[in-house]
């Protein structure tokens, strides 16, 4: 590439920024504010999802076996469960172990020493990777001949799963709306900066600039505006997160949530990307309006 042209391109971008500084700063500020609002919502949504997942993840399936089940049956079942891709882990609880647990739990309240036979069955405690797999897996296990019955607190679990799905959808809807709103705000701001330079675009066309020569510096400026706004937004959000997150975790100990588990890096990347991409597209669309055929 000819050095003169590269130099011209960068000089155009730099000059447009410095000589329209007030406009550029207003646009960057607007993008930054939009990104802060979007960032707070993205963080809230991630935290809430994490909270719901933490609750739902506590659900286990208890598989009680019939007394007829032989050790070989138990062994086969154990292997089958371990091989199942949906299963996170499986623990076998023998009759004896179950009785011990019960003794400990009822110690001082009921004297189990009076019972001579162990009425408790052998069982498996199964934990799935995805809580959504709990009901179907429980159904499959119930159908096995060695299984007496299966318990996973079906009503509560199913309700929790429904709540998670509904809230997840609502959260997604809110985020999509917010994304659209953010994009529109950024688009409108950048459109105004381009509109203010409509005369310039006409002059560029008059002196024989091709559409691409006119468009590229604008598109790049849009990208830089979005990027700068996004980064400034992060500069506001990051210290706020650092200060508030530990306090929130400390003050809400009853919630099964550790805010440190929220993937803030991921959110930060999303925010900067939203700023940059929307900024670039907004410039592109805005300039194209003025580059119509004569």
């Amino acid at each position: 590439m000819d050095w003169g042209r590269t130099q011209f391109f960068w000089a155009e971008v730099a000059q447009n920024f410095t000589r329209n500084a007030a406009m550029a700063l207003t646009a960057i500020g607007t993008v930054a504010i939009s990104i802060v609002v979007l960032g707070v919502f993205l963080f809230a949504r991630s935290s809430f999802n994490l909270l719901l997942n933490n609750v739902v993840n506590k659900v286990d399936i208890a598989v009680y076996l019939k007394d007829e089940a032989t050790p070989a049956d138990i062994d086969t079942m154990m292997r089958q469960l371990r091989a199942d891709p949906r299963v996170d882990n499986v623990r076998f609880v023998s009759k004896q172990e179950a009785l011990e647990t019960l003794r400990k739990r009822l110690a001082g309240q009921v004297n189990l020493g009076l019972i001579n036979v162990n009425p408790l069955p052998n069982s498996f405690v199964v934990h799935t990777i995805d809580p959504g797999d709990v009901p179907p897996l429980a159904g499959e296990l119930q159908a096995k001949p060695q299984v007496a019955f299966v318990n996973y607190g079906s009503k509560v679990t199913e309700k929790l799963l429904v709540i998670r799905r509904v809230l997840g959808t609502i959260g997604l809807g809110v985020i999509v709306l917010l994304l659209v709103a953010t994009a529109l705000i950024i688009y409108n701001t950048i459109r105004l900066t381009v509109f203010a330079r409509q005369r310039e675009i006409t002059i560029m066309q008059l002196v024989g600039a091709t559409n691409w020569t006119i468009r590229w510096p604008f598109v790049f400026e849009g990208l830089l505006t979005g990027l700068a706004g996004g980064l400034i937004g992060l500069l506001v959000l990051w210290p706020a997160y650092q200060t508030l997150a530990p306090k929130l975790t400390l003050n809400l100990p009853f919630l099964p949530l550790n805010l440190a588990d929220v993937s803030v890096g991921h959110i930060a990347l999303e925010l900067v990307l939203v700023g940059a991409v929307v900024g670039m597209l907004a410039s592109w669309l805005s300039v194209s309006r003025y580059l119509r055929p004569a």
Binding site: G4, R5, F8, Q15, T202, I203, M204, V207, G208
Partner: peptide, 26 residues
Amino acid sequence: KLLRGKTVWENVAYALQVTGATSRDV
């Protein structure tokens, strides 16, 4: 119809630069 943000030199140079002229030519 001059570009207000550009100097006299830059206004004139601009018409050349958009044609892809080299900096030497400009």
